[in-house]
Structure formats: structure tokens, C-alpha cells
């Protein structure tokens, strides 16, 4: 699986925390570039890759929203 987060929109800490929350479901690697934060991972067998990718993105969005100044 691979999911890309725009660094100008998503908090790096939020993405890192989201990956940590999903760590039990597979092995993940976070690449931090200037423009994007890319999460690559290999999920455990039997898990729905598309669904996990969407859930991870949702989780990162939620954590970023909570870390906004007025969030």
C-alpha cells in the first residue's frame, strides 16, 4: 500500500501518529519529502489494502484537524 499526504496540508506529527496507530496491522515506512509525506506499507495477509489505506488517511486527517489552532 502507498498513500501520499501533502506536507502543506497534513501535520507530519499527525501522519506519524496515524502510522503508529496502524503499526499492528503491518509494516510501515514513512518518507518525508519537502512537498509530500509518503507512507508505504506491507499489510498482514487477509487485510483489505484499499480499506486500510482509506482508514489511515482518515485517521491522519482527524489528527491533523484536532491539531489545528481552533480545532
Amino acid at each position: 500500500m502507498e498513500v501520499s499526504f501533502d506536507a502543506s496540508l497534513y501535520s507530519r506529527a499527525a501522519v506519524a501518529n496515524a502510522v503508529e496507530a496502524f503499526a499492528e496491522l503491518g509494516e510501515f515506512h514513512v518518507e518525508q519529502g519537502d512537498a509530500h509525506i509518503i507512507v508505504r506499507g506491507t499489510l498482514q495477509e487477509g487485510l483489505d489494502e484499499r480499506l486500510l489505506t482509506l482508514e489511515l488517511a482518515n485517521y491522519a486527517l482527524g489528527l491533523t484537524a484536532e491539531s489545528q489552532p481552533s480545532g
Binding site: 501533502d6 502543506s8 496540508l9 497534513y10 482509506l54 482508514e55 488517511a57 482518515n58 486527517l61 482527524g62 491533523t64 484537524a65 484536532e66 489545528q68 489552532p69 481552533s70 480545532g71
Partner: peptide, 20 residues
Amino acid sequence: DAIFGAAYTFIDRCYMHLER
């Protein structure tokens, strides 16, 4: 922050992803 605030209220119904 308004976009994130609005998106946050939909994560129970939808998978949300923001891009630029």
C-alpha cells in the same frame, strides 16, 4: 483550518483525503 474542520465532521460517513 475551516476545510479541515468541515472534513472532520464527515469522517464517520466518508473516507476523506485532502490534496493540493
